[in-house]
Design a protein around this nucleic acid. Structure first.
Lengths: 334, 334
DNA sequence: GTGAAAGCGCTAACAT
DNA sequence: ATGTTAGCGCTTTCAC
């Protein structure tokens, strides 16, 4: 019988077992030896009272909350759930819980959410900053909080990082196009000013080896089908239009396909379209999307493991960088 | 200049402002009047020290953590991110943060996650229980925690509820099929034994008005394309097979379409397929999925508002039930 | 309008 | 192997 309503405390368990709260604490944590007979009485009392340690009190005292914050751009955008799920799985197995936040790539939101999480004493944060620099993020997180940044940027940063080699997959796409004689490439990116975060213009430029791009062939869109459709329409309305469009994510690419057809052009014969991420939908639409595989689950997994590793090793250990490859999967759209 | 590393406390702010911690607390919370001049000094000190209240300490003392737990089946399954995002948006606007957990519809996981969240003192939990009954969930959550359950079940439950009228949309689907002379209906559900959670067999039975279903026409699958493909294959291998298959979600339906084609049959001429949820992909595949629209964003929004309402009104107020309609959208697969 | 004292439920340091 | 003491950083009486 539980049921009296009152949550029991470590003190009430100690009373029932005839020991001190300290001993109960140690019986639970295993941080120091407790005799078998005492243990037994303690656990009997815990059972009887249906006692559950108050994690808030524990967090305040021990300065460890067994929690981590996931600060992603937008959980509703199909790439992120797979990342979040992978992170959640490895963290949950280690007894951590996850906070989740959507930044939308907005500087104020990124800052506010991060501060909020730090104020809640999270042991770690996994973040994909878009508007904030890695240095700013570290500044807010403080030196003690485990911090993993995911992005494509490979420069130095004062944090552990899980990077995807976006240039590699995109270069494969460029090569694949070139093999078919397609050299006139346009690009639709997201967040115009961003120096980190989702696929960016500089990645595109790296992939085309610094070749110059005609005026207007680089467009920006929100990471949605609608955004892609509008941006592609602008691109295709140009007097001299590209023969292929590389897109910062698959949703944009799907919108671009629609815009292309709406303009009376064929995909891929008139305009080839390449997506990015390889979300489930990519292989299901028609034409099936030729796209660059962004290994969401592997990214999430690496982020979580890095957090765990950092929590274990403390802030003193050197920064750890994990780079995951991306690669092209050729389907029908290019 | 921040930068000394040490996080400042309410005490250090009080010292700097020449007041007591009590006054700082009140200046921050607005729970009692503070003279303008004092206020000013306090906020100057806060600014100078870059002070952020420790939410863990605040939570321990005040028994309010300004946090809520989202215990969904699987964030990686396309229906849920939209729900989560909507919840997050309304909660974040009110200063709440969100925990997230994936239960996979497993009883132990549901229980463990829920206990964990209660131990962390969340002010509320939004849950879609599958294996646990609403009563069990309430038992674990305790009477004080705001609890919103989302499901399709319309029975009494000791919690606030946000329900979708799944029978309605499914009935529209059955009628639509009947209008075309299609009366032989099979069903692919998820979690076999579930009495709550995602679309269930009893909903299907209600939609067909209690008509009897031939042996083997009710199948179960995981909520994935692969699951749907395998289950549909079993259905179609039957000596007497259904002329239409209603599916518990769109992923299953997409798999069913593939299985149908793999069996050399046409969709919808030989076998009509109806999905559920109307995820983004549904309108993008070909044939475009005829499906029942499950209003994810409205569900999330209602869940969050209900939590907020319950937190404001306390456990004494009568349970609140919100029912959201579903409706059929006819495309190509049926 | 403000402050002093107490204490939320735990764990860490220092005992023995 | 166990207990005592102190205190994490706040908010809440209760006092003036």
């Amino acid at each position: 019988m539980a049921g009296t309503g009152e949550r029991s405390s470590i003190q009430s368990v100690a009373d029932a077992a005839g020991v001190s709260p300290t001993t109960v604490s140690h019986a639970l944590s295993g941080k120091r030896a407790v005799s078998p007979r005492t243990r037994e009485r303690i656990f009997a009392a815990i059972e009887a009272q249906n006692y559950r340690p108050n994690m808030v009190a524990k967090g305040l005292r021990s300065r460890r909350t067994q929690s981590v914050a996931l600060l992603l751009v937008d959980i509703a955008n199909p790439y992120y759930p797979a990342v979040a799920r992978a992170i959640h799985d490895v963290l949950a197995a280690e007894g951590y819980v996850s906070f989740i936040g959507n930044t939308d790539g907005d500087a104020d939101t990124e800052r506010k959410l991060l501060e909020e999480m730090v104020a809640r004493g999270v042991d770690g944060v996994v973040m994909q900053p878009v508007a904030l620099s890695a240095a700013e993020v570290r500044e807010i997180a403080g030196p003690e909080t485990a911090l993993v940044i995911t992005t494509t940027e490979a420069g130095e940063m004062p944090a552990d990082a899980v990077l995807t080699d976006d240039v590699r997959g995109l270069t494969e796409a460029v090569t694949h196009l070139a093999d078919q004689g397609v050299h006139e490439l346009g690009f639709i990116g997201g967040f115009p000013g961003a120096s980190a975060g989702p696929l960016r213009v500089d990645t595109f430029e790296a992939a085309i080896g610094g070749a110059s791009v005609p005026e207007g062939w680089i467009e920006h869109a929100t990471f949605t089908r609608e955004g892609g459709e509008a941006a592609a329409a602008r691109l295709l309305a140009l007097p001299h239009r590209p023969r292929a469009i590389l897109c910062a994510n698959d949703l944009i690419a799907i919108g671009a396909v629609e815009a292309t057809r709406a303009a009376g052009l064929r995909v891929p014969e008139d305009v080839a379209i390449v997506g990015f991420d390889d979300i489930d939908t990519a292989s299901l639409v028609s034409p099936a999307l030729t796209t660059v595989v962004n290994p969401a689950a592997a990214v999430g997994d690496a982020c979580a493991r890095t957090i765990l590793w950092r929590v274990e090793h403390g802030p003193g250990a050197p920064y750890r960088k994990t780079v995951l490859p991306t690669h092209l999967v050729v389907r029908q759209s290019a």
